[in-house]
């Protein structure tokens, strides 16, 4: 039997980080809604109103306007200041899931760098740039 080729370190680094961040994100996304429902006042948006409005076909602006005290969406990164709130925890879970590629590609890119695979180091940094660019909302068509 032929010897199996060694799995490259960049593969393992990227895959393992994605996997574990994904698991942590789902655990947070499970706990968050329970906290939201148990303490409805400890939320940015009242969960008891959200589902009715979503089911009525209201768009996201109308949903946030009707369910938050400020009457508007507090921004994608609102969990930073509201980590004890139910939807703050849920938002952190979703946020973490949406940045897990960044968490994985960045260190994998440095593995390429130390292996002197310059091309893939550059491509990895480009991918990280694209995720950060999208995340910061620098370009908006609307």
């Amino acid at each position: 039997m032929e010897e199996r080729p060694k799995i490259p370190l960049d593969n393992i680094v990227a895959g393992d980080i994605i996997y574990w961040v994904c698991i942590i994100a789902s655990m947070l996304a499970m706990i968050g809604p329970v906290v939201s429902i148990l303490w409805p006042d400890n939320n940015i948006a009242n969960p008891y109103k959200v589902f009715d409005l979503v089911w009525e076909g209201k768009n996201s602006e109308e949903v946030w306007a009707a369910t938050t005290q400020e009457g508007k969406y507090p921004g994608a990164h609102f969990w930073v200041h509201h980590l004890t709130k139910g939807d703050g925890i849920t938002q952190l879970g979703a946020w973490l899931g949406c940045v897990c590629a960044l968490c994985a590609i960045f260190p994998a890119g440095w593995v390429f760098f130390f292996k002197r695979v310059w091309g893939y180091w550059l491509i990895s940094m480009w991918a990280c740039f694209m995720i950060s660019f999208a995340m910061l909302g620098i370009l908006e068509m609307h």
Binding site: P47, F51, S60, A94
Partner: peptide, 19 residues
Amino acid sequence: CIAVWPYFLVGAMIPVVIA
């Protein structure tokens, strides 16, 4: 992970619905 952010930034990701 790139495509999701425009939706996230305009509030279309309602936490208790997507979780």
